[in-house]
Nucleic acid binder design. Sequence first.
DNA 1: CTGAAAGCGCTAACAA
DNA 2: TTGTTAGCGCTTTCAG
Lengths: 337, 337
Amino acid sequence: MVTDTPKRQVTLDEVAERAGVSRSAASRVINNAPHVSRAKREAVLRAVDDLGYVPNATARALATQQVGAVVLAMSGEDPAMFADPFFAEVVVGISSVLEETDLELVLSLATSTRGQARLEQLLRTHQADGVMLMSLHGDDPLATLANKSSVPVVFGGRPLTFEPRYYVDADNRGGARAATEHLVATGRRRIATITGRLDEGAGMARLQGFQDALAVAGQDGGRVAHGDFSEDGGSRAMDELLERYPDLDGVFIASDQMAIGALRALGKSGRSVPGEVGIVGFNDIATARHTAPPLTTVSQPINSLGREMARMLLDLMAGNDPSPLILPTRLVIRESA
Amino acid sequence: MVTDTPKRQVTLDEVAERAGVSRSAASRVINNAPHVSRAKREAVLRAVDDLGYVPNATARALATQQVGAVVLAMSGEDPAMFADPFFAEVVVGISSVLEETDLELVLSLATSTRGQARLEQLLRTHQADGVMLMSLHGDDPLATLANKSSVPVVFGGRPLTFEPRYYVDADNRGGARAATEHLVATGRRRIATITGRLDEGAGMARLQGFQDALAVAGQDGGRVAHGDFSEDGGSRAMDELLERYPDLDGVFIASDQMAIGALRALGKSGRSVPGEVGIVGFNDIATARHTAPPLTTVSQPINSLGREMARMLLDLMAGNDPSPLILPTRLVIRESA
DNA sequence: CTGAAAGCGCTAACAA
DNA sequence: TTGTTAGCGCTTTCAG
């Protein structure tokens, strides 16, 4: 027979009474603070056990002014974007470090204005002990808000408009440079790029990396078409590129999704990959291994990104002053370039 | 100039004082309860505005005994499994309905024993007003625990060991049946299956659907190999199938990931798809459109699954008694069968 | 319609 | 090492 969970909550007072000690003594035991005699400590523990006492987190939060939760907030107009496996992986990373603590993870996908307002409120009302902010677009008001918030905030990725004090980012620029250098090294001479959204830090950084590499190689970095990270966007951008630069022989594409779209467009135009044009993507999504041909791409340490964000936040909450982090990316060479 | 967020929290008392009313009156206004004169109401609202008052959620929670949060818990031994886009999509669905309410979403990935313990505690201590539970394996102790929990619980998918009172599930059995019927209808006569984990409801249901279809068609439903939903598992299972039934001409595979592995194994063995053997997968993951050949598969309404789980939970929390839901699946015919 | 007062369950000075 | 005493900020009877 399992002890049935009692309907009403067992309070600390009841435990104290049962154990024959004061409430504060009981409290000390629960939080294993010092200044409790061994005898009393054991009595309390026994009472806890008998009664099935479990501390009330809310009451504790009210008393300590600490919520016991951190929030991961992502803003953006399109709810569907969160379905990106990228986020799932980040969450797994974060979760794995939080699991070692007593903090809960609350997820806030702020898409609608309503959602944004809630997030804003969350930041103002100390409903969380810390905040992780991801994927801020353009001049997201959230960024400013977060900055003047009194709770610790760490950014995942860097917004365009300012450099946050605390952030962890992937080396997008370096990854893009490596990707482009690979194109150069394999003999491509008329290289173009399809960018991501340029109102996002990652989109811009990848464009810069592309240009860095071509500048160093002494090649023309002017062949650029704008995409939006989506498959269709990639396809459209590729069409545009093909029309403007029919003789291009290499393309660095700022996301694998776009690269998949581009592959389609390339196929329609009758170009062979990697024969006539080599392409390299970014992100190393699962599908990248199954396209035809398999995609050469840049892999990000997504899980680590989440992990490090969480660690940094914890550090911050502990009163330390951690340094920002930039995580290395890695070129994964497959067959498309 | 933006009003600076004051460091200390503005309390209701301060608002009341500023507005020249009692605290209870102020409280009523905030929660727009009746019995407040128009004049007072406006005075309070003005004070709120002037002071930048925002209610303290924790205090409110303590007073009302309502946390203002629901948790989405997923248990399972492998942290990586949460990286599955499936979960991301479910979360998006849930989030979209929660956004209309004032509830926060806390995410609990209980992988380690530590994590499980925390979840357990969460359930016992009323740290949430409701719980959504997903992907329970075998005889997960969580299931029992959740069942005798005093907070409303809705299941995503059905565990094997018992039929929960409240759940929303996809029609796995029906989907598998449709998939298999398609194989039959396209002339396959020696059809096998690769199952998922059979200690999961979905895995078992898909096997049953397979058998249903073959029984109706009067064919042999005995060609089965066991997989674990993973790509490698699918590949291994396909090898096994090929060895045992070299003449098979169709395979229903309980997940696209496994189907991808199977495709690889089939290629190695020199079989053509769909020429010599037709295959159909399950889930319609993004990659399914890009395999060679593109995968015929069963699509689940994942977003709706999340959505309906949230709705059902809300309903439950409102004191109603909703009926379980089974969401239809849909066969997506591409080129692999 | 209005306000006083009694909690919600826990923590943390402070005094003993 | 102990226990007493105030709170934390909000809600909610219950009289008026």
